[in-house]
Design a protein around this nucleic acid. Structure first.
Length: 637
RNA sequence: GCUGCUGUAGCUCAGUGGUAGAGCACCUCCUUGGUAAGGAGGAGGUCACGGGUUCAAGUCCCGUCAGCAGCUCCA
């Protein structure tokens, strides 16, 4: 296992120099022994170090950044109403990294309007003066807002409960019903620290039945430098957009002729997926899951029995007629798994039974929500269902937590777990909820996994733990989930014969680790941005013979690399400089250069992606190095 | 689904009512190059689709589809 690393370690890949995004103090403590490796490796993929430190929220101003952003949103509203005096204002809060304000305006805004609004804001900043706070009686406030012709504000005011303070914040000639807090004076707002970013529609009060207002998003910081840093961060986010990378690196495509929201996995991403799936099955074999395969289509009665048709009919693809009976493409794998369970009588000795399937499902997502690979209409869930006795539940959940940890840390994701408790509308007795909640909590405690609260966030059929993961850019993604289900066991009347010869109801657990392969891999594209770890990399090695004299030797080298299980491609198109450049742009980790010298000495010249210096080494050392990196699932090259 | 914007070559984009363009990619030839772009030539388009206005539509209008920014939704 120990190889001659010394030479190789002299040129760590670019990614290895990067600091992990999260500070140690912010990092999960679960399980402690795994923490060190997960954080010290970092996501292994980054671009620039300053970007990796985002999102940053410097608190260097006289008041909080939130107050600054809130104040800038007022200035913006003031500016917009000066340009559109008949406009109506709704709400304008600070949000993460910025703010927005909602308006009803006589004409639709476009992004071309933003510079003009910004110019007006700059002008207003000079005259705005103090931010004055005042408390008004309800009658005074109502009159003020009615006189101003601001019906949305009047509505907001009416919703403030009796007894609570009604406050206004004024600057210059602007007066706004608002809780604050704000900056003390406009002079505290840096005139080159804000930027308007986009316009979009937004429903009044977030309700799709209400009027659609126009929302302007902006960002604000205490200095031009911070603003710049944030804008660079936004550029990096754009550059990593999986749709853009998907085109540039030939990873996937979508085709309206086949249908919106249906993903085509191209060869390179197909390789990534196959490697992921192979590993996934390996983990599931180790954890005692059985593979199952269930039909993609089922007669409607199946989904009536499961309840999906009644509760989610608008999300299920339209029925197709088969021999006069309506059938549906499956939106879920669980009915199939339950059907397998129910196909024979089970003893308590059979339990727990763990069924796993990479099950492709179709859901009719609204057209406006489709988004590359991240929100689609056909996707493959890495689905599993565990049928256990109530007493086994806790152990089973611990098993899932371990798999979650293995998977997320392997990719360098930080994660947070949320315990979603009973919602108002829900099924099941207090006792079963209590039992399931306790099992979830106890399992988390056994793994020292801190649980954040998500009160009422459970599904109607049972409580769950959801995982949010943080990627290389510090963005949060919806991650794995483990859910206890009290509904399907009843609906399908599943039973096992217990030791006392009584028929009892098993507990059913749904869990997904990737969630959907499409979404997870789409996220990986953005997380790794082309820097796939070696074990997943579709093009890990290119062999570059310098001249045609080395071409036959190149074939030889390539075959040795391929025999070791790594894809390797020989490229002879054009001068070496061009081929090096192409390989660098494609983020190919290892460039094996062969000239007369190398062939003569039986060595190869290795250039690692992002590292200008090269080294000579033997094929045996190179392959040992590759195998080690692959087997460790290293995030660095 | 809703509001707004967009749809021109494989990609990125120019083209403001009068004969469809550029760069990259691709193909052919030349070049055999020692670590981030060697040179020349060529091919490639039903200007998303359907309808309308006009002597004339990539360009103006309407509709459909798809994409984009959000909103709502996501068992």
């Amino acid at each position: 296992m120990r190889v001659e690393w010394v030479l190789l370690l002299a040129f760590p890949a670019k990614a290895a120099k990067l600091k992990p995004y999260l500070k140690k103090s912010e990092v999960q403590s679960f399980p402690p022994q795994a923490l060190e490796s997960a954080t010290s490796r970092g996501p292994g993929t980054a671009g620039r170090e300053d970007i990796m430190s985002l999102p940053f929220e410097p608190q260097s101003g006289p008041v909080s950044l939130e107050a600054l952003r809130h104040s800038v949103s007022h200035i913006m509203a003031d500016a917009v109403l000066r340009l559109f005096p008949e406009g109506k204002v709704a709400i304008g809060p600070p949000i993460e990294h910025g703010f927005y304000y909602d308006f009803e305006l006589p004409r639709p805004l476009t992004e071309e309007d933003l510079p003009q609004i910004e110019a007006k804001m700059t002008e207003l900043l000079k005259q705005a003066g103090e931010f004055q706070y005042s408390r008004l009686s309800r009658a005074e406030a109502t009159k003020r807002l009615q006189d101003a012709g601001q019906p949305y504000k009047v509505e907001l005011l009416a919703d403030i409960p009796e007894g609570e303070d009604i406050t206004f914040y004024d600057h210059g000639t602007w007066s706004d019903l608002c809780e604050g807090p704000h900056v003390e004076s406009a002079g505290q707002i840096p005139k080159d620290g804000f930027r308007l970013l986009s316009v979009a529609g937004a429903y009044w009060r977030g309700d799709a039945n209400n009027a659609m207002l126009q929302r302007i998003y902006g960002t604000a910081w205490w200095s031009k430098k911070d603003l710049k840093k944030y804008l660079v961060y936004l550029e990096e986010v754009q550059a990593r957009d999986h749709r853009k990378l998907g085109r540039e690196h030939d990873l996937f495509s979508l085709h309206p002729k086949f249908g919106a929201g249906l993903v085509f996995w191209h060869p390179k991403l197909g390789h990534v997926r196959r490697e992921l799936e192979a590993w996934w099955w390996q983990l599931h074999d180790q954890a005692g899951y059985w593979p199952v395969y269930t039909p993609h289509v089922a007669g409607e009665p199946v989904f009536e029995q499961s309840g999906h048709l009644q509760n989610y009919s608008e999300m299920i693809w339209a029925p197709m007629d088969v021999d006069g009976h309506p059938h549906r493409v499956k939106p879920m794998n669980c009915p199939g798994h339950v059907t397998i369970f129910n196909s024979r009588r089970h003893s308590y000795r059979d339990l727990p039974l763990r069924f796993a399937e990479l099950g492709t499902v179709y859901r009719y997502e609204p057209s406006g929500t489709l988004h590359g690979m991240l929100r689609v209409r056909g996707f493959t869930q890495d689905d599993a269902h565990i049928f256990s006795t109530p007493g086994q539940l806790e152990d089973e959940i611990v098993g899932v937590l371990d798999m979650v940890h293995t998977i997320l840390t392997t990719f360098g994701y930080q994660y947070t777990a949320y315990l979603a408790t009973r919602p108002e509308k829900s099924l099941g007795s207090d006792e079963v909820w209590e039992h399931a909640m306790n099992a979830l909590k106890a399992a988390a405690a056994r793994r020292q996994l801190p649980l954040q609260d998500d009160p009422g966030g459970g599904v109607f059929y049972g409580p769950k733990i959801d995982f949010k993961m943080r990627d290389a850019l510090g963005r949060e993604w919806q991650g794995p989930t483990v859910q206890v289900d009290f509904n399907l066991p009843d609906r399908f009347d599943i039973k096992f014969n217990d030791a006392d010869n009584e028929l009892k109801r098993p507990v059913m657990v749904h869990r997904a680790l990737f969630g959907s392969l499409e979404r997870f891999v789409g996220g990986l594209i953005e997380h790794f941005a082309g820097w796939w770890p070696l074990w997943l990399h579709p093009n890990p090695v290119v062999v570059l013979p310098i001249g045609s004299d080395q071409e036959s030797a190149a074939g030889d080298y390539r075959n040795q690399i391929a025999a070791a299980g790594f894809r390797a491609e020989i490229r002879t198109d054009g001068p070496l400089r061009k081929r090096i450049r192409d390989a660098e742009l494609e983020k190919i980790p290892y460039m094996v250069v062969l000239g007369g010298r190398e062939v003569e000495q039986g060595v190869l010249n290795l250039r690692v992606h992002g590292v200008k210096e090269q080294r000579s080494l033997t094929m045996a050392d190179f392959l040992a190095y590759l195998r080690d990196r692959r087997d460790q699932k290293s995030l660095d090259y």
